[in-house]
Design a protein around this nucleic acid. Structure first.
Lengths: 577, 577
DNA sequence: TTGTTGGCGATACGCCGACAA
DNA sequence: TTGTCGGCGTATCGCCAACAA
């Protein structure tokens, strides 16, 4: 799936202005060459059917910095829904172009599109074949009607997103007078399989040419498969696997895997009310994560009303702000905020939001939701990538100058053949007797992990430990502000040459680091810079005042995660010999 | 497109007995591991849209011996038509397994399917929603009807090829009494988009369970694209590119190219009345080509009637038997027979048939259609691959023992940089001053060809000349029985290593060789056996009594063809310098 | 201003026997 | 035996104003 692919023959490129009107005004399209973050979690949310099976590598990288290499604005040939194909190229965090060039590239094209969306009532969709035209729509979109005629009537020629034309008889009649579409309307409803709750979007360009688009309701339980209205009546056939609109679990998994491996990938995004972007402009993410999110923060969120006629603004209070500190998606900021919305009726299915979706309404903190946390000084600098590009995310509680002092060290697990040396080919015993030795003689060992794996394919793993510490506060060891990230590298050794096969990394942070700080780039260890980091390790270690108990826990957690990884990779746990 | 691919998720495997009944009893399915010949010409005939663009390599290999690696019997989800995916692996002629194991593998499965096909009349397809059931169908397929009831009526539950069930009300009424399907029938017609001329196949298995299949008429001018009945009314949209039923030109071209290169490939075959198999069992082809076809031979051909109720047998006279002796598909036996059918009304679009489609009805030759030909002794041996596997096709007029004396010689064109040495990189001047020197001092030069080509990719061509001769007849030089085949090899020389890129070969035969003899395997020259052949060339040349004029013509023709090939390959003719 | 309802005319659907090939 | 036709009862379509929210 290389990015410079032709525009997918079965789909049709849609005029960008039409596309925007159909998608709704709140949909933001990333522009080519802009920097974004890709959140595989958000991608998974939009997949239909069974949840995609993701590798540990993917689960360890909850967000991936990318550059947009191409954007295709298309329309689903079957459902008329507009969607976008985004072609992304993962980039190293340090390579993220500091570009604010087209942040306001939403300069509207010369001749505007005026549009009006209406949700179909049951009467519009089901009965008598008529469509009640809201007066505003008739006035602003339709051509002028001769109100002197009796009755005032006209025939509209409207183009759909595929270029097909539809004729609608528009009449102004009834007592009291109202605008109605009659002849032609029910044919459109039947052909497009519209049901009550769907929306139609009427559009008019500068020349008066009219267009019509469709948005479809998402009935819950129907995550997009060929069920419900798309099923051929009384035919048990499957009719699956076509170029349908929804994201298959396979497509999501493929994109996520490629992204995690750093390969160019493609995602499909259907803009829908309530569906959150999983490809977000880098500026937005970085700005949102520069805030120290804690419980009590007042936030507001603007959402488009269902008919996209106006924007609604909701306020709420952050209940908690936490990203998982173990397991899959560790350290992910995706939906890390749990918000209690003031208007408790609506938005109840949007209690978990990502921080870039909201703005701060009032920064009055009610209470800290982290009892163990000590207040550390909060210097909310913008904190983008510094000159060396080593750290690009701001760490709450750590100033940028502090960040530069975080340096990695390297250590390896004891990974040796189980039982007798060479007793069984590729049979390894991995034990948690991980030792970390530094100049200040900090030594840890975790005896809580001991497992045997049979290694079918890989025969070397090396684990890297990156340690960062704030030296500005002189805290007691047990509450030391610290950051630890691990990466485990699986190396295949077929014949004489060895090649890196995969990297699984995750990160943990000291307790007093706010969860938002757990955002951190991939460890990205290579043989080359590992050496460099080792050299720096001594000076780094000298500065460390790590909690032994904390580090042990970190390493234990990592080993447990690695255990899961190994299991997923096909290693089989065996009895210790 | 590797052959061991899973069964293409969007299609459904069909019970083999159902598949056979739907396809028609005359359709022969090759079995796994059986030997076949693949005829790209026949494949091209079934492609829709524009003719596939084929490389010279493909055009030079009109048939390719293969082994069937897998067979998928499927049904088109849209049209309900059954089709088969054949996975083929090209093999060297010498490797063609001499297997006659499953020649009668058509052992019917334990419980038979009884079926009845009827072509839909306009009344069946269009009007009033009824279907006139032929009495035989009702008696043999439908469950017994209680004729004492007034009226006799029943509801049939019928399963289509996708497993969907349909209900039909079957009533026996009218004056005179007849069987009619009423309620449910028109829904089926509309859903399946049946039109007059299509066929439905009613089937019943041993347990009385009923099935229904569909065959569709092929309106001329509509070679399968999404036109006609499949077009959505009043929607200008394209709706193309789906997993439709027909063979796209691209798919055909891909299969043909892969086949010509010796790579495993897949073909899709829709069994249709009048569509000839392009994958034919090796035994049939070889048996058919062991016959010396000439004009005047009486032949008969059995074809299934359109409703597959019975087989019709037609007789005719071979008018001529000739395969192209130059240009594309040179030496192809595909549709090499031109037949005048006695029943001149029907079969007029089947005047050209392949020899394995017919049987000889009477071998009385009326006259020879080749005035120049001398009668050579016709030893119609079976002539399959001999021990060395060098020649696998019988040559009429050449006994097998004769064939072994045909040995190749090698010669190269003068192929040198045009103008000054190194004047332009990759700029070659190919001139027709081809010299052939042998022990009997036969020397030819053709001055009729002189062309300059700019060579964008390849930088070496070598041409091989294979000469075969019958030494049994002592004929004058001008009518010498002889066979000449050329092969030109394009070699890419990127950096230090060179690799063969493509082989274009064709064959010409002496005039008195009957055209059927022009069937010959690919030259298949490699560096290794070229040397070996050179060694044998002297003894071979000693035996030759070639017509100089004939050989000149052969070489001239080859150079002209190579000129075309070079043009197709992207060489550009330039002015001679 | 606009969603829903029921009336009601027009059309198309679909079952039927008559008739003929 | 079976293809086609016209009859005709019925279901649905689709346009409409009345009425209500």
């Amino acid at each position: 799936m290389p990015p410079p692919r032709p525009p997918a023959a079965e789909f049709r490129h849609v005029d960008l202005r039409i596309w925007r009107a159909c998608a709704g005004s709140s949909v933001r399209l990333p522009t080519v060459n802009s920097s974004v973050y890709y959140f595989p979690q958000g991608h998974v949310e939009q997949s239909c059917g069974s949840a995609p099976l993701l590798s540990p590598l993917v689960l360890s990288r909850p967000f991936i910095p990318c550059v947009i290499s191409d954007v295709h604005c298309l329309a689903d040939p079957k459902t008329d829904e507009v969607f976008v194909e985004l072609f992304l190229v993962p980039v190293e965090p340090s390579r993220l172009p500091n570009q604010f060039l087209d942040i306001n590239a939403e300069v509207d094209d010369s001749d505007k599109i005026v549009s009006f969306a209406k949700i179909l009532t049951p009467s519009d969709a089901n009965n008598g074949g008529g469509f009640s035209v809201p007066r505003f729509c008739a006035d602003s979109i339709f051509p002028p009607l001769d109100y002197n005629a009796e009755p005032p009537v006209q025939t509209l020629s409207v183009t759909d997103v595929h270029g097909g034309t539809w004729e609608f008889r528009h009449i102004y009649r009834g007592t009291p007078r109202r605008h109605i579409l009659t002849t032609g309307w029910s044919k459109f409803v039947n052909q497009k399989k519209l049901i009550a709750g769907d929306s139609v979007v009427f559009m008019r360009d500068g020349n008066g040419k009219m267009f019509i688009g469709v948005r479809r309701v998402m009935k819950k339980g129907d995550s997009g498969g060929d069920s419900g209205r798309w099923r051929e009546p009384s035919d048990g056939g499957s009719m699956k696997g076509e170029g349908r609109g929804r994201l298959t679990a396979e497509a999501v998994a493929e994109a996520a895997e490629r992204a995690a491996k750093g390969l160019p990938f493609k995602v499909v995004y259907y803009p829908r009310p309530g569906w959150t972007d999983f490809v977000v402009r880098a500026e937005f993410v970085e700005a949102a994560l520069s805030i120290c999110w804690t419980g009590g923060i007042r936030v507001k969120m603007t959402v488009e009303t269902e008919d996209s006629s106006k924007m609604s603004c909701f306020q709420g209070t952050v209940i908690s702000a936490a990203s998982p500190d173990s397991g899959p998606w560790i350290g992910s900021p995706w939906r890390m905020l749990l918000v209690a919305w003031d208007d408790s009726d609506v938005l109840q299915n949007a209690r978990r939001v990502s921080p870039w979706r909201v703005e701060i309404a009032s920064s009055l903190p009610l209470h800290s939701s982290f009892p163990l946390a000590k207040k550390s000084k909060l210097s909310q600098e913008s904190g983008l990538a510094d000159a060396e590009g080593e750290i690009f995310f701001p760490m709450a509680g750590l100033t940028n100058s502090t960040m530069r002092h975080m340096n990695p060290s390297l250590l390896n697990y004891n990974c040796f053949p189980a039982g007798m040396q060479g007793a069984r080919q590729n049979h390894f015993h991995i034990q948690g007797s991980t030792n970390y030795l530094s100049e200040n003689n900090l030594m840890m060992s975790t005896d809580s992990f001991s497992s045997n794996y049979w290694l079918p394919k890989f025969n070397r793993i090396s684990t890297e430990l990156n340690i960062g510490s704030s030296q500005s506060d002189n805290l007691s060891p047990d509450s030391q502000s610290s950051m630890v990230s691990f990466g485990t590298e699986f190396t295949e050794n077929a014949g004489c040459s060895s090649s890196k096969v995969g990297v699984s990394s995750f990160q943990l942070f000291g307790q007093i680091i706010h969860p938002v700080g757990s955002i951190f780039g991939n460890v990205g260890s290579t043989e080359d810079d590992t050496g460099k980091r080792c050299d720096e390790a001594t000076s780094s270690a000298r500065e460390l005042q790590l909690s032994k108990a904390f580090l042990c826990e970190c390493i234990h957690a990592h080993i447990m995660q690695m255990s899961n990884c190994l299991g997923n990779l096909g290693w089989q746990e065996v009895e210790p010999s």
